[in-house]
Amino acid sequence: MIEVNTVSKSFDRTKILNDVSFRVNKGSIYGLLGSNGAGKTTLMRILTGILKQNNGQVHILEDDVFENESVKQRMVFIPDSLYFLPQYTTRQMADYNRSMYDSWNEERYEKLKKVFQLDEKKKISQFSKGMQRQVAFWLAMSAMPDVLILDEPFDGLDAVMRQKVRNLIIQDVAEREMTVLISSHNLREVEDICDHVGILHKGEILLERDLDDLKADVHKIQVAFNDDSFQPEEANLDILHKEKRGSVWLLIVRGSEADISAEIKDHRPLVYDRLPLTLEEIFIYEMGGVGYAFENILV
C-alpha cells in the first residue's frame, strides 16, 4: 500500500507539490489524474524514492521509501519517458534487472515473451515507441513487484496491446494483491481499470473518490411539475448542478437513489426520469462548484 502524508516539494523556488495526501490500499488500482504540469511526474518520482520531498512522509508498504532498499525491492516504476541502457537488448536489460531485484522471476519473463512476441536479442533502441513500452512492462512484471507505479503507461500502445497490458495488471492485482498507481491526464484511459481516482491540480489533491461509490452516489435526473412552485434550492436535495428548459428541470444530485426518489415524489412530479451519467460528467459536476475548468483535465 501507498500512504502519502502532507507532502510538499519545490524546485528552486517553484512549488510543485503542496501538501499532498492520499492513500492507496493494498490490492487497489489508483488513478492519479491531472493536467500537464499538475505535478504527477514529480509526485511519482518522490513515490519511487528518486527525489526526496521537502516536507511530509511517503510510506510504501508501511515504511519510508527514500534510500530504502527493502521497500524499493518490492516496487517497480515505469516512467513516462522510458529509459533503457544504451545499446542494450531486452535480454541484457533483463539480466540487469534480475541483478537488481531479488524477486525477479525468470519463468514469468519467459512466459511474457510469448505474450509480447518481441525479439529479446534485438537492441531496444531499434524498437518503436510502443514496443519499447511493452519491453518496459515485460521487465516490470517479471520482477513480480508488490507495488507498481506507472506514469502515463498507455501512451503509444495500440488498443490490442493496451488491453493485454491491462489484463496483465488486473491479473496480478487479483492473484497477488499487487498495488498499482497509474497516472494519466485522461480519465477515459483509466476509468475502466481503476477502482479509485484522485485528481491532482496545481500541486494539490482536489478530490479522491472510490469509483463504485461515485457512480452510486451521483445522479442525473429530469423532472417536470404542474406548476412553478418547485424550487430546487428549497427541496431537501444536495444539488450539484441545475438547469431549466421550459418547464423541465435537469438536476445533478448527490445522494442515495432511494432518498432522491422519495424527495422528488413528495413534490408530485409529472415526469421523473433518471438519465445515464458518464464518469466524466460526474467529475465535471463535482468539480464545477469549485470553479475550475475541469473539462480540460479530464478529456
Binding site: I50, S70, K72, F77, P79, S81, Y83, M100, Y101
Partner: peptide, 14 residues
C-alpha cells in the same frame, strides 16, 4: 534526467 531516474529507481542505496 532519464538516466538518473533510471539508475536511482532501482533498489540500491546511492
Amino acid at each position: 534526467k532519464g538516466a538518473s531516474d533510471f539508475a536511482h529507481s532501482f533498489p540500491m542505496k546511492r
